[in-house]
């Protein structure tokens, strides 16, 4: 059961990564990246590494996304 859940999460990660590559709207790509980070945090919780899960949720989904959004607001939104 846990394996199926893991495979689903990993598939979601791969789909997100491919989508980031193909979406030309940078803001959407950043939002997808935030989703990717959150799923990554869940995976780390599943791998019994709660310390990294917390750090990833705060750093990956929070700060990195924020920095990207700020940069895009300063520059161009389309690729």
């Amino acid at each position: 059961m846990a394996e199926i859940f893991h495979v689903l999460l990993l598939t979601f990660l791969i789909v997100c990564a491919v989508a980031v590559a193909y979406i030309r709207d940078l803001l959407s790509a950043v939002i997808l990246f935030a989703a990717y980070s959150l799923v990554m945090a869940i995976i780390w919780q599943q791998l019994d590494a709660p310390d990294i899960a917390m750090a990833e949720a705060a750093i990956g989904a929070g700060v990195t996304t924020l920095l990207f959004v700020v940069t895009i607001s300063k520059t161009r939104r389309q690729e």
């Binding site: 990564a17 980031v20 590559a21 990246f33 990554m40 590494a49 990956g60 990207f68 520059t75």
Partner: peptide, 20 residues
């Protein structure tokens, strides 16, 4: 900016590898 996103994705992938 896409390059930097790719950089982040690459790094998190390695982190996933190490943690697993």
């Amino acid at each position: 900016i896409k390059k930097i996103m790719g950089m982040n994705i690459m790094e998190t992938a390695i982190f996933l590898f190490v943690v697993s």
